[in-house]
Design a protein around this nucleic acid. Structure first.
Lengths: 189, 189
DNA sequence: CGATAATGTCAACACATGTTGGCCTACACT
DNA sequence: AGTGTAGGCCAACATGTGTTGACATTATCG
């Protein structure tokens, strides 16, 4: 045999990741993915069943958030945005989710799941008032996803041009207030 | 004649707005739009030429930002987010741009144009240091678009559940700092 | 009334897409 | 060498899409 089954499966998956990240779910075609992978479209079907299952495999992403409770309380804001930027630039899955979640309800549901399952629980460990944790996590999500949207997807020139340090310096305090502050910006006791 | 040319054109445009806002550019089909409008798909072509021109007509949006310089300096943050929330809920064009700009480069370019032509100039009037104005505007865009994304598109439960006042109270100070503060959050002289 | 142009409908084309089944090819094992 | 099987390719189908042209219908005006 030319290649092992697992090898070609991996090649297809890599090509699918790139295409889904670049063109979204509808925009990425099986034929284009197969062409990128240098194989026949039929192979994609053989190994992944159909387009939706291929997408599911390509969009399997883990945020791998660090344990915020293990970080000095006054640094969680900077730590969160820093980690998120790293993660975004390493894992194409983030781009896939954002590009497709905007027009695909199933993916949007998945993003809500990631939010509720990976970010919210972490935030709730920071606060004694567990009631407010989802709100805090939600606020953090708006700022963090908004940055990803403007920087990596829309590529607004001033935002795309910022250095990692600048972003951390500007967004860190914002996230710090969302995660640990009250409305007026004072830290909770 | 049953209807005037302008009337049906308006009916088509209204249906197109809804479909584009709900399904994005690729997801919205001429046939579905025509069906919503209660007419034949061929009419759409007759009046708008092709799908892209129809989209261009449907996505013609004006942010109608107020003159930030005419607002007390310490309130520009709250004013900006408040105005943006109003605008979003009144004009389907905002949803169209966000839903489609994420996967369509031409629309993304258009959003960059709106940003550079409508938001950035306004911000530059707030600051003596004109060099920093694009950066400030960009930061504001990340927070404001991130809120729209999480609240109206992704519908993250805690964010969608917030009241207008809560959002203004939480995001106002953030935008205030992006627009008029230095990195540490102190107002510029 | 009759002509004419505007408004609308119908059927079809050309094309791209996801998906399927049959066929070929090359290796491993006896 | 012969054979079975896994990996791979080709051609085709069914469907949905944007788009087009020919035909019908209706209102306006000479």
């Amino acid at each position: 045999m030319r290649r092992s089954s697992e090898d070609t499966k991996a090649v297809i998956l890599a090509a699918a990741r790139e295409r889904f990240a670049a063109d979204g779910f509808q925009g990425a075609t099986i034929r284009a993915i197969a062409s990128d992978a240098g194989i026949d479209p039929a192979m994609v079907m053989r190994y992944f069943g159909n387009k939706e299952k291929l997408f599911a495999a390509a969009a399997d992403v883990d945020l791998r958030f660090p344990d915020l409770a293990a970080i000095p309380r006054e640094e969680v804001g900077r730590a969160l945005i820093g980690h998120f930027l790293d993660r975004w630039e390493q894992d194409e899955g983030m781009m896939i989710l954002l590009r497709t979640g905007v027009t695909n309800e199933a993916v949007a549901e998945r993003m809500r799941g990631i939010f509720a399952g990976q970010l919210a629980p972490l935030v709730s460990k920071l606060d004694d008032d567990r009631e407010r944790a989802p709100l805090r996590a939600g606020l953090a999500a708006t700022q963090v996803l908004g940055m990803a949207l403007c920087r990596y997807v829309l590529r607004l020139p001033p935002v795309a041009a910022m250095s990692r340090e600048e972003i951390v310096d500007w967004l860190g305090p914002t996230l710090q207030r969302y995660l640990t502050g009250d409305v007026d910006g004072h830290d909770t006791a």
